[in-house]
């Protein structure tokens, strides 16, 4: 059974991927104590293990060091989460890449100004909303006839895409914006209500009023 | 044995990943004939199979449709390329993500103006050069004691990172810029001289004089 230490700051959606995967697999993940973001991950000791100094970062009990959130989630997962055939494994990689390339940049462009961690740019936000609409629509079409993204069980694809959508559903996808994505909403609400997911992200509240940039 | 059709335009480094993987695995990949980028991938028939309309896109002989270049490369690969243990598989995902997040954005920022794809931006290019230096240095440190990125054989990690570095080594990494990354150069030159790689990208010429933006 995999065990190890996860270096991350609190409420890190990327770290949630591995923490949720471990809930399913039984892997023993312990959040590294005393981790100070911006200090610990810049220390020589940390950079020796993780040269890019990025978090989340995982150090297994038997000394293996893995960076990049999708790789860590894969390592602490189990066979069910990883996919049962070459086709499913390829489809899981496809959805993990979809999350990183089609959702994440647009999600951060839209949500970061709302969180006050980036200047608001009207044009960029408008473009991000279009991109998010396209991504949610692609998910919606896919989930019209499917309960989960790959095969008939929850896999890393569902976990990674769900974690990457958390900021959107929490801060800006209000009722009005999300109502047309019926299948995506059904799938997302099912995921956040799995006990393994709740154990990590707690009770998730869907956005009621879209956050606005406060100059 | 996997067989199928690959939709792409010529000289697409993302498509090279799957084409090279197929050279190793023996998968039968045929480049879709009559594909016109900007038309075929916008047709209803294509969008029905590949809703995001992106290439490369793969349709297997038995009707499975896979988008995203890393997923296609995984599907057409073999067990050796995919990694032989959970740790190796996780490390391969880590390097594929490294290519997409640490190399690709900076490579596009630096090379696209040189190719005339984008406007030149002095500040962005300077930042990109720093990022490429960091990425090449991380590779160089890793390859000081290793021949390949994961384990003792060529895997998808080597193929994906090599393909993502092609534009840089071809257009801007001249002798002066690349000379300090001795281990990375050794690894890259070994990869491009593998017959399975040569069969796809042909004879690769390292950059002699860094391309400049021509206003």
């Amino acid at each position: 059974m995999v065990a190890g230490k996860l270096y991350t700051y609190p409420e890190n959606f990327r770290a949630f991927k591995a923490l949720i995967a471990a809930q399913y697999s039984g892997a023993k993940l312990e959040i590294a104590k005393g981790f100070v973001f911006g200090e610990t991950n810049k220390s020589d000791a940390f950079l020796k293990k993780f040269p890019l100094g990025k978090v989340p970062a995982f150090e297994s009990a038997d000394g293996h060091c893995i960076a990049e959130s999708n790789a860590i989630a894969y390592y602490v997962a189990n066979e069910t989460l990883r996919g049962s055939s070459d086709l499913e494994k390829a489809q899981i990689i496809q959805w993990m890449t979809f999350a990183d390339t089609e959702i994440l940049p647009a999600s951060c462009t839209w949500v970061f100004p709302v969180l006050g961690i980036m200047q608001f740019n009207k044009q960029a936000t408008a473009r991000a909303k279009e991109d998010i609409d396209k991504a949610l629509q692609a998910l919606d079409d896919h989930l019209l006839t499917r309960t989960y993204l790959v095969g008939e069980r929850i896999t890393l694809a569902d976990i990674v895409v769900t974690c990457t959508l958390l900021h959107l559903y929490q801060h800006v996808l209000d009722e009005a914006f999300r109502k047309s994505y019926v299948n995506t909403n059904r799938w997302f609400i099912t995921l956040i209500n799995q006990k393994q997911v709740k154990a990590v992200i707690g009770d998730f509240k869907l956005c009621e009023k879209a956050g606005e940039f406060d100059p | 044995m996997v067989a199928g059709k690959l939709y792409t335009y010529p000289e697409n480094f993302r498509a090279f990943k799957a084409l090279i993987a197929a050279q190793y695995s023996g998968a039968k990949l045929e480049i879709a004939k009559g594909f016109v980028f900007g038309e075929t991938n916008k047709s209803d028939a294509f969008l029905k199979k590949f809703p995001l309309g992106k290439v490369p896109a793969f349709e297997s002989a038995d009707g499975h449709c896979i988008a995203e270049s890393n997923a296609i490369a995984y599907y057409v690969a073999n067990e050796t390329l995919r990694g032989s243990s959970d740790l190796e598989k996780a490390q391969i995902i880590q390097w594929m993500t490294f290519a997409d997040t640490e190399i690709l954005p900076a490579s596009c920022t630096w090379v696209f103006p040189v190719l005339g794809i984008m406007q030149f931006n002095k500040q962005a290019t300077a930042r990109a050069k720093e990022d490429i230096d960091k990425a090449l240095q991380a590779l160089d440190d890793h390859l000081l004691t290793r021949t390949y990125l994961v384990g003792e054989r060529i895997t998808l990690a080597d193929i994906v990172v090599t393909c993502t570095l092609l534009h840089l080594y071809q257009h801007v990494l001249d002798e002066a810029f690349r000379k300090s990354y001795v281990n990375t150069n050794r690894w890259f030159i070994t990869l491009i001289n593998q017959k399975q790689v040569k069969a796809v990208i042909g004879d690769f010429k390292l950059c002699e004089k860094a391309g400049e933006f021509d206003p």
Binding site: Y9, F37, G38, L115, A128 | Y9, G38, F112, L115, I117
Partner: peptide, 30 residues
């Protein structure tokens, strides 16, 4: 967490680069 998030390296310009790349190769191969 918001401060930590602020230090994340996100490719905000990705849509712009995707667009430019798509246009370039459509012209090349159109």
């Amino acid at each position: 967490a918001a401060d930590c998030l602020a230090s994340e390296r996100i490719w905000f310009d990705k849509p712009r680069y995707d667009e430019a790349e798509r246009r370039f190769y459509e012209q090349m191969n159109g």
